[in-house]
Computed example of a mutant assay.
Amino acid sequence: MFDTDSDADLIDALSASSRSESAVIAQRLAVIGELDARREHDLAETFFWRTDPFEEVAAEVSAAMNVGRGRASWQIRHARAL
């Protein structure tokens, strides 16, 4: 697959794929942060909360990403930090 590529070409390809991956991760965290902000706002306006906003978002993120609740929570915490 990479037989004809020089070492410099491989390093360039690695750098480009790393930048692309970082951009996609940033977009995912921005989406999670927006969902978290919306759920917190929506639940704050109700008299009786169905659940904690964090837990609701964790369930949605977990289902959307097909990951466990722990990984979803980690994603939410990073999104909030950003």
Rank of each mutant, 00 (worst) to 15 (best):
V31E: 14
S15D: 06
P53V: 05
A37F: 02
A81N: 09
A58I: 05
S20V: 00
R71T: 12
A30K: 12
D36Q: 00
R38Q: 12
M1H: 07
R38T: 11
A81T: 09
R28Y: 03
N66A: 15
F54C: 02
V57L: 09
L10N: 03
S62C: 09
F2H: 10
M1F: 02
D42W: 03
R28T: 11
G33Q: 02
A37V: 04
L10A: 07
A63M: 05
T46E: 12
F47T: 14
A23E: 15
R19S: 11
A26Y: 00
W49H: 12
A26I: 01
A23M: 06
A59F: 05
R50I: 15
R39N: 10
D9P: 00
T4M: 02
P53E: 14
T46I: 14
H41Q: 08
G70P: 02
S6N: 04
D52M: 03
D12N: 09
Q75W: 15
D9W: 04
E40M: 05
S15T: 09
A8I: 11
T4A: 12
L35M: 14
R69E: 15
G68N: 06
E60H: 00
R80V: 14
A26N: 08
E34T: 08
A72S: 05
S73M: 13
L43R: 03
A16E: 14
L10P: 01
V61M: 09
S20Y: 00
A26E: 12
S62Y: 07
A59M: 09
S15G: 04
V61K: 03
L35N: 13
R80D: 12
A79V: 06
D42S: 04
E60N: 01
V31S: 06
L82P: 06
D52L: 08
D3R: 13
A37I: 03
D7P: 01
A81D: 13
R39D: 11
N66W: 03
S73C: 12
A79S: 15
D36F: 01
G70F: 08
D3C: 09
A16I: 00
E45C: 04
S22F: 02
